[in-house]
Design a protein around this nucleic acid. Structure first.
Lengths: 116, 116
DNA sequence: TATAGATATACGAATATACATATATGAACA
DNA sequence: TGTTCATATATGTATATTCGTATATCTATA
């Protein structure tokens, strides 16, 4: 499966999607309820944007019981990984990205397994 | 002047805009008629997209007589320059980007001064 | 001033996007 | 089977985007 270049940048052009990608890039893998809590937006909005990212082959999902985890596919082209690296390095200390990470880390069930 | 991150990626998410940026990145500076000829699209379409890029502070223009030249502003944030470098390195050997460059180099007035 | 060439903008139409809300699906378990 | 929780999708609405075409602006020069 190939990723179109406009699709790739279009994925990053929406703040909600970029926030999801940035958090997933920093943690490796997150489920929908973790993203919902970290970003503080309603769940259908998260699911819709994750579906767009999955459809563009920028994220892949993995179901584990009730939870669905999203991660970057390992075969993402190298230059796209570099773009994500540079982008996340730059935005991770800006709002709303740093608050997202803080809220994620404050989730009681984080750093254990399972979700809220 | 600050560039919003969504604006930056939105600029790259359109193929016409990415083709313009890629050519300008490779050459340093191009005028509207050079871009029009290289991409093979009508002039108002080029001007409209260049105006979007200028409005997002991703390109800057410089008038020289009848011609208007567009270039990347020197103070573009470093990580955005890195993103452009990685992107152009990757797409420069794919269509339609390599044909764009070929058509640009075939312009009789190129490598001299002035335009067609 | 009049003309020509280069560039910019205005306009209407078709299409796409993002959102909030409501509802559906799917898995686990009593 | 029925319920609950996590996630996905459908719907209607408001707004944005892109395009082709027509026209306006701007500069140089006669």
């Amino acid at each position: 499966m190939n990723i179109s270049i406009p699709d790739f940048f279009h994925a990053l052009a929406d703040e909600t999607r970029l926030r999801c990608i940035a958090l997933i890039h920093q943690t490796g893998e997150l489920c929908v309820c973790e993203l919902t809590h970290a970003l503080g937006v309603v769940q259908p909005k998260i699911s819709r944007h994750l579906a767009i990212l999955k459809g563009a082959h920028i994220l892949r999902d993995r179901r584990a019981g009730v939870w669905v985890y999203y991660h970057l596919p390992p075969e993402l082209p190298g230059w796209m990984v570099k773009v994500l690296n540079d982008t996340v390095m730059s935005v991770r200390d800006q709002e709303p990205f740093c608050t997202d990470r803080k809220r994620l880390n404050e989730m009681p069930s984080r750093s254990q397994n399972g979700c809220s």
